[in-house]
Computed example of a mutant assay.
Amino acid sequence: MVKGLSQEQKLTIKLKTKLEKEIAQLEQKLIIEEQIKMRLTQALQIKDDKINELEKKLVTLDQERIKQLKDKEKELSKIEKELINKLTSGENTKEIHKEKEAKQKEMNELQQELSRISASYNANRKKRILNQVNNFLKVKGDFLTLQEEAIKKLQNCCNHLESSINKEKDTIGSIEDIKTSKFIDKYTKEFQSILVKYNDGLLELNKNYYSLKNVVQENKELNSFNLDKYKIFKFATNSQEGTRIQLNSNMMKEDINSLRKNLNELNQKKNELINLATV
């Protein structure tokens, strides 16, 4: 302990040390919890992928069985016609009647199975589409939340740029171009790093979109969905994909307003794909 300190100062130092230790412990705990959360998320994703694969196999198996049954149905229909022709041509024997009844029974059983498998196929197919749509809508919702968060951070960045320049002007009455350029460099870098970070959220949306598209590619409803509307740099045009060297506050405001307008439009169409679940 440092000599010459008052009792109050000693207590303050002791309390500060204790608090710093507790903060460090909490930070470590938070890191561990984040790691656990990440592992659980990965495990859930693996589980979802397996379920999706099994559902896909079920649909494929039903599809194959339906084809087999329809081929068999055609074959039985052909045999029945041949038997009817024999009966009408005078070959009215017990054997032909017996064979006809057997084929009719087989046809009835086949049609019952075909009806059952078709119902299973439609249910599994609809379930798979519904799961894909729900997954997509969840990711889409997360993406829109991220974009809203990004807009707030971009606005703060723009505000900091303006306040830094204004503060310098108020302090010395004017501001040199070099000083202004320094502020712009700093906040341009921050502004564009925010855009790049949140644009990465599009990758997950993109993956789910194409997964959904593969499942329901025959549905025209999907054509109304335009993935380009979710590309941040499609609207933050002044940033030029995060490569522009300098952005002044007006350019930042233009990008922010463009993103905000885009976000409002996307929120209005939040349920645009839900009708796919009823196909």
Rank of each mutant, 00 (worst) to 15 (best):
F233G: 04
G201K: 13
T171Q: 14
K220W: 11
L144R: 11
K153Q: 08
A150V: 02
I175G: 07
H160S: 01
K186G: 00
V215W: 05
Y210D: 09
E162R: 04
K231Q: 15
T237E: 06
K220H: 13
S181E: 12
I245M: 04
L205Y: 08
A150S: 09
I151L: 06
T243P: 08
A150C: 06
E221H: 13
Q155L: 07
N223R: 04
H160E: 02
S211F: 04
R244M: 03
S181W: 10
E168Y: 06
C157W: 06
N219R: 15
E148D: 10
Y198F: 14
K207V: 04
Q155K: 10
N214E: 11
T237A: 05
H160N: 03
D185N: 10
Q246W: 03
I175N: 09
K179Y: 11
Y210A: 10
F225M: 09
T243A: 07
N214K: 11
F225W: 12
Y210M: 12
E204Q: 15
N166M: 07
D170E: 11
N223I: 02
V215C: 13
V215K: 14
T145C: 11
S181G: 03
E241N: 08
E204K: 15
F191V: 00
S239V: 00
S164D: 09
L202P: 12
L247T: 00
D185C: 07
I175F: 03
S211R: 13
N248S: 03
L195R: 00
S163N: 13
S164Y: 06
N238I: 05
T243R: 12
E221P: 08
N208G: 05
F191H: 08
G242P: 04
K167P: 03
I175D: 06
E149I: 09
S174Q: 13
E241G: 01
Q246N: 07
A236C: 02
Q192I: 04
Q155E: 10
E204G: 15
S239Q: 11
T237N: 08
I151R: 05
T180F: 13
Q192G: 02
E218R: 14
E190V: 07
S239L: 05
S211T: 10
I165E: 02
F225D: 11
L202F: 15
K152A: 00
